[in-house]
Amino acid sequence: MMVSMASASPGPGARGSAAPAGSSPDLGELLRLCARGDESAFSRLYDTVSGRIYGLILRVVRDPAQSEEVAQEALLDIWRTSARFDPAQGSAVSWMLTIAHRKAVDRVRSAQAATDREDVYGSRNQERAFDETSETVERRLEARRVRNAMDTLTETQRGAVELAYFGGYTHTEVASLLDIPLGTAKTRIRDGLIRLRDTLGVQS
């Protein structure tokens, strides 16, 4: 498990494991402080998670200027709604990334026609994409662990999961892009995520 999730209360989505570094602040506690209007707590929160949030949004949205806008919206939403974080439902980082991902997906879908998104087939070479981004990944070991876990997926599962999560496509669009039946895309996304979850779980 990555550092930032380790301190959250275990919820349905949290897999307890030792954090590789003890310096990471308790994000759940920081969110509670944010809910009371503590701006310095938000500043610490930002320093811990902004790379994850911005990087995820950038991967989905692709345009850096738009990504910065979306990241700003997501972070302001996190501040505004921090009281809604419920540790029983999952980790703090999971809650924040869910907000960020949804914002990114909303942006690309609302701007589908206008946005100059790279052709999906250009994004298929995920090895290349991973190599590029790994230059900026600080937690290299964890990134490698996740990459190894992705390698345990079948190629078809991996493709469907990547198009859905990083591509921001609906399962219907994924089915069309991969030229597979509708139900098959749904199943591949789900099976791929289950495999990823279980692999990461046993490794953590």
Binding site: M2, M5, G11, P12, G13, A14, R15, E39, F42, S43, Y46, S50, G51, R52, I53, Y54, G55, L56, L58, R59, P64, E68, A71, Q72, L75, L76, W79, Q89, G90, S91, V93, S94, L97, T98, H101, F130, T133, S134, T136, V137, E138, R139, E142, A143, V146, R147, A149, M150, V161, Y165, F166, R190, L193, I194, L196, R197, L200
Partner: peptide, 29 residues
């Protein structure tokens, strides 16, 4: 919840330092 947690581990592969202007605008916001 469990699948979200797994998917969000994927974001480790995309981690990118944001431009400094982001923190300024967010803290001002």
């Amino acid at each position: 919840a469990s699948l979200r947690a797994a998917a969000e581990d994927l974001s480790l592969l995309a981690e990118t330092a944001p431009p400094a202007s982001l923190k300024q605008s967010v803290m001002a916001g």
